[in-house]
Amino acid sequence: MSGIWLYLVAGILFLCSLYADRAKTRKALAKALDSFRQILPTVLGMMVLVGLVTTFVPPTTIARLIGPQSGALGIVTALAIGSAAMLPSFVAIPLAGSLLKAGAGYPQVAAFISTIMAVGVVSLPLEARLFGWKAAALRNGAAFVTAMVFTLAVKEILV
């Protein structure tokens, strides 16, 4: 359903853009293709990984680890995995969809995607070099707390 309005909004804006400036619209299309090409290898790799994992790890195991009944431990697991590295949101959302289909619970997926987008322990040294350790640690800590609050909200409201 929301997929339809995504197409609708993009389609209308595209037509407006085409009407206003053909050359700019062509540049926009080139940029769209370029961005898509850039994330495609990572997304496809993630999809294969998810395909492999779901084949070898039965849904019952996924459900036990991060399923709706996995409770606080499942949330902690999801927060920990999500905090390890950072993935762009375009990659995180399809991954979240796959996890949900594989039997993960909503709060656990919330914990995973909110941390994977904003908390990155692996990239912390890079961030610290740019902003200083204090600011980098604070930003990651803040993003982690935010992820926890969001997860609890999903747990209370959506489940």
């Binding site: 997929g3 995504l6 993009a10 389609g11 926009a28 940029k31 998810v50 399809p94 969809g97």
Partner: peptide, 27 residues
Amino acid sequence: VATLKSISDMLALLPPVFLLIGLIDVW
């Protein structure tokens, strides 16, 4: 099969997302 299924799910929604990214970038 599982991989192809997730890819087709993704491809169903991703084209307008990237079209928007391109349009925003230019305008």
